[in-house]
């Protein structure tokens, strides 16, 4: 199914969880899982719900991590 993840169209298996999408983005990055936050369709998905939140086609995800800021 098609999702929009951080502004880009992304194909994931039906029934994929938030945790799976985050895992895919974090893999190979030095960011680590520690301080990642996720919004789905404009609402926060708490870390405790990543494993149990199944995505549906057309969902819009923002997966964010710390950066420097003033």
């Amino acid at each position: 199914m098609q999702l929009t993840v951080n502004g880009a169209g992304t194909d994931v298996p039906d029934g994929a969880t938030v945790a799976a999408v985050v895992e895919g983005l974090v893999a190979g990055r030095a960011t680590g899982h520690g301080r990642v936050a996720v919004a789905r369709n404009g609402d926060v998905v708490p870390r405790s719900a990543w494993e149990t939140t199944r995505l549906t086609a057309g969902d819009v995800l923002e997966v964010l991590a710390p950066t420097a800021g003033g």
Binding site: N6, G7, L25, V26, R29, A30, T31, G32, G34, R35, V36, A37, E62, V63, L64, A65, P66, T67, A68, G69, G70
Partner: peptide, 30 residues
């Protein structure tokens, strides 16, 4: 110390948080 959030592709690597943790500062997300 203020910090920000950005899409993970454009974010800092984990070293930034390690530095701030090591310095013992309170974080103020913007």
């Amino acid at each position: 110390v203020t910090v920000a959030l950005r899409r993970i592709e454009a974010s800092a690597d984990a070293a930034m948080m390690r530095v701030l943790d090591r310095c013992g500062v309170r974080l103020l997300p913007n």
